[in-house]
Design a protein around this nucleic acid. Structure first.
Length: 613
RNA sequence: GCCACCGUAGCUCAGUCGGUGGAGCGCCACCUUGGUAAGGUGGAGGUCGCGGGUUCGAUUCCCGCCGGUGGCUCCA
């Protein structure tokens, strides 16, 4: 039900002609009421069950504006999902009855008529107000969330496995853990500034807002596209090494599909809705659906377990609230590496959980985020903890630092155990990166089964894993960390394997551009990203520009280098050194070993490059 | 979704108590041929976010919308 409230000096309306056969019979065509709260109402499908909630809402508003006279005005134009005429009329009549019982003077404009009306709105802050009164299903959900809050317990677990209360833990050596715990528990946040990574993503020509799209849908310039592609390739190779099978599934799903619908209703977040003719589809907010539907149709033996399916969910869509969107930290369209593992029992699920936990640590390390650059949260039900205390302690030992623990008396979500690695930025906001969950609910919901040794059909446990978290969020964390480094006086940079230009060669004069290009070809042939600044500028100026791009190795070419056949290399944050080209090659090989390689995303000569910003 | 602030050249921003606008950077041209974080001179470039309203006249005032940022709410 949708209601538009107007607190009015008066309303006057006149029924002109019937808009439908079912229109009510009326006595007076023209009516006028002074000093009243007018409720324009669209009755939607299924609203008969919402009567009491609607009455509460109307009374709530009436009390706020001190109105004793209420005019219920049927108004179909607030919704595209209207109830049938008979249901709507019943709901309106019942509303009238109930409001009268509560002691209000209630009038109702006739249903099913074209009416003219004049209204005088008082214009104070509460005089215009719209409300959407939602279904019972969603109401139950919010009750569940409230219950979750009542039975949630927070602790810090130290590396010896002892639980401390979050208030009393000594955070002296772990200031970020304190910030993370505050953020998680109280949700306190006091940021006033633009997050530092936003300026960096723009000035480094990585990503930018796209005013031509919905907010939270970014554009990625060539350098940003390169970084994303490398991160994606890297995560993909990690999970393939781990034994996953890569698949691809649709980005939109039938809104009315039974198992999807119950999942959607359990998590009433905001989806993008796509209309295909009259049919409604929602854009996926993770890769779960497609993979679950695929596994539902698969024939799986216990011999196939643990079975791992991986997909790069590009994109995943979540229509986050506008106020919540922020640079690359929280988007409406994002790229989510998403792996699901079927495990035969809890023991196997825990084994895989631990492997994936260790993989996530290594993955983040390769992005330049070490233990200590992020905070660990482990969440579980009390039952799980009682039966698996040693396992939890082991997880904490593996990261060798205290961890935020959240424990529930009952299971509110689909999982019994979950971890996340959270990056805490300079504005004290936390953002989850890697995560794994043990899901005990969706195998049944989606009808995913395997056959055990006795030929019996069983439900497996399902692990949800994103070893890195959203790709855009990895970039956010790297940029935020670089900014923190810069504030500490350290030169900010990306890991060498992710730097769009790894070597910049700067000829001292035009006549050396030729040798510079020769050197470039040497390194390019070895698979590194090299470019030449052939612009008509001073050496100082070209150095400055290269430094502003965070280029890790800057090579100046002139007489000296040509005669002695050496390279003068300015290593980022480490001064200028002379070396043979083979030495530089060796350094680069060490820096990028085992990481994916991609070619330079821009023309190799700087004079041929546009500026995107 | 609600509230607040913001939107002027490609970028960062100044300005107009209502009379169609500036700087630095970038871009283009010329000079300069350079040695580790900005060489010099000149030029081009604007529907002052979009749409209405008030006005003789709106970039400026008012309303609406769009976009950005922050707060609240929310975050599977």
């Amino acid at each position: 039900m949708r209601v538009l409230f107007i607190h009015a000096d008066y309303i006057e309306f006149e029924a002109k002609s019937k808009a439908m056969k079912a229109a009510e019979e009326i006595e007076r065509k023209r009516e006028r009421y002074e000093e009243c709260l007018v409720a324009f109402i669209s009755v939607e499908e299924g609203d008969s069950s919402l009567l009491h909630k609607a009455v509460d809402e109307i009374e709530d508003v009436a009390k706020k504006v001190n109105a004793e006279r209420i005019v219920l005005y049927p108004y179909a134009h607030l919704s595209s999902n209207l109830a049938g005429a008979s249901e709507a009329m019943d709901v309106l009549r019942n509303l009238e009855e109930e409001m009268k019982k509560r002691g209000y003077e209630v009038h109702r404009a006739p249903f099913g008529w074209y009416k003219s009306f004049v209204i005088s709105c008082k214009g104070h802050p509460l005089s215009e107000l719209s409300k959407e009164i939602k279904s019972e299903e969603k109401e139950e959900e919010s009750e569940a969330l409230k219950a979750e809050k009542r039975t949630t317990y927070w602790y810090i677990m130290d590396t010896d496995g002892n639980l401390h209360s979050v208030e009393e833990f000594d955070y002296r050596d772990y200031p970020n853990l304190k910030k993370f715990a505050d953020y998680e528990i109280s949700g306190s946040r006091a940021a006033k500034e633009i997050p530092p990574h936003v300026k960096l993503m723009q000035s480094l020509e990585i990503a930018d807002y796209e005013p031509g799209s919905d907010s939270g849908n970014m554009r990625y310039y060539p350098k940003g596209k390169l970084i994303k592609a490398l991160i994606e390739e890297y995560v993909e190779s990690r999970v393939l090494d781990y034994g996953a099978m890569q698949v691809e599934t649709p980005i939109m799903y039938d809104y009315e599909h039974p198992s999807l619908k119950s999942y959607l209703n359990r998590f009433p977040a905001r989806q993008y809705i796509v209309l295909s003719g009259r049919d409604k589809y929602f854009l996926r907010f993770a890769a779960c659906f497609g993979q679950f539907l695929m596994m539902h149709d698969a024939t799986i033996s216990y011999k196939n377990l643990p079975l791992k399916i991986y997909e790069l969910a590009k994109y995943s869509f979540r229509r986050e609230q506008k106020g919540e969107l922020s640079g690359l930290r929280r988007l409406r369209a994002f790229t989510m590496p998403d792996m699901h593992t079927l495990a035969r029992d809890l023991r196997e699920a825990m084994e895989e959980f631990k492997k994936q936990y260790e993989m996530a640590i290594e993955v983040l390390r390769d992005f330049g985020l070490s233990l200590g650059d992020y905070e660990v949260a482990i969440r579980f039900t009390r039952d799980f903890y009682e039966e698996n205390k040693e396992f939890i302690k082991e997880l904490v030992r593996l990261v060798d630092r205290p961890v935020l623990i959240q424990m529930w008396d009952e299971r509110f979500f689909y999982f019994v155990l979950k971890f996340e690695f959270n990056f805490v930025d300079s504005l004290n906001k936390a953002a989850a990166l890697s995560t794994v969950q043990i899901d005990v609910e969706n195998a049944e919901r989606y009808g995913i089964t395997y056959y055990d040794e006795n030929g019996e059909e069983k439900y497996p446990y399902i692990l949800h894993c994103s070893p890195s978290g959203a790709v855009e969020r990895v970039i956010y964390a790297m940029l935020e960390k670089a900014d923190m480094d810069a504030k500490k006086g350290k030169k900010p940079m990306l890991p060498v394997w992710l730097s769009p230009t790894q070597i910049r060669i700067i000829p001292v004069r035009d006549e050396f551009t030729g040798c510079a290009i020769q050197e470039m070809d040497y390194f390019a042939k070895e698979g590194f990203r090299v470019d030449v600044d052939d612009r008509d500028l001073t050496v100082s100026r070209k150095i400055r520009d290269a430094e502003k791009e965070w280029i890790p190795y800057i090579v100046v070419m002139g007489e000296k280098e040509k005669e002695r056949d050496i390279l003068t290399v300015r290593i980022r944050g480490d001064g200028v050194k002379e070396m043979k080209r083979e030495e530089l090659l060796e350094i680069l090989r060490n820096e990028t070993e085992g990481k994916p390689k991609r070619r330079l995303p821009l023309p190799p000569l700087l004079s041929e490059r546009p500026r995107f910003r």
